[in-house]
Amino acid sequence: MSAVAEAAPSGVQSIGQLAGGGTDRLLRFLWVAPLVFALVVTTLYPTVFLIALSLSKSTLGKPFSAFVGLAQILRVLGDPQFQLALARSVLFAVVVSALQLVLGFAIALLFSRLLKAGRFLVSLVLLPLMTPPVAVGVAWKLILAPAGGLLNGVLADLGLTDAPLSFLATPFLAWVSLILADVWQWTPFVVILCFAALTTIPESVNEAAAIDGASRWQRLRHVTLPLVAAPLSAIFLLKMIIAFKLFDLVYVLTFGGPGFATTTAGFSIWRMALERFDVGGAAAQTLVFSIVIGLVTLPVVRFNKAMEARER
């Protein structure tokens, strides 16, 4: 095998050249055609279709019954409830992503010091990540329930509360609950990625710094963090994208309530489409939401590109 490999003509960069670089473009495109088809169905077609829906009057039974121009988009843009829902989605994405990055990195640091046990623990945190989000919602609902919830039981036993707290029926506590459940589910993802990033740092780098008399904190601040800055920014970006997909936890834990307190943009769109059957309005909301996601993540994408460029 190796003898054959050595006999390969030097300077050949890719199999493509060996296979005859002049293969016609259509044949080459066939390789990626199935994937491109999938992207067209899941992304390009929905975008075009949503623009058409938002400009026309539609029902679930009969789309595009009349052209209404920008009326629906303007209505959605001027709707204070939807503006609030957008703000909630953005705030949630930023808060949980930052929280999970800090927590996940700290846990990964802790695990990485434990060598063998660390690897086992990383496998253990795989469980929350793989749990169906609906079941995550059910589990936290049981813990947070006013009657018979574990948390209220503990608080009462410790004498901290006189009457059970309705975590999911108080706007602020409902948000804390959603964030708690999301932290439980997604911090493990950050732990696994941070753990992998940390293991790429050669042991000798840390040892050298220790010999130079750097304290543990100094080593973290001036050696470890700069070395993992690029992956950390990539993880933050990934986490923000995922946080904008929040839906299941809201559906199970709060159903957007109390009132509209935890109605995010995603949940608002779902209600508009499948509860009020206002297809045009839901399409207009979706377009606005997509644009907002793009605008909010753009600086993070830019920052991530800069970090990766610095690395080279």
Binding site: F247, W270, T286
Partner: peptide, 21 residues
Amino acid sequence: QATLASYMAPPVVALLPLFFL
């Protein structure tokens, strides 16, 4: 770039278009 852009859109974006499809 195309796959990343596709991943960025939340599933709720595809809800109505895929329902009709």
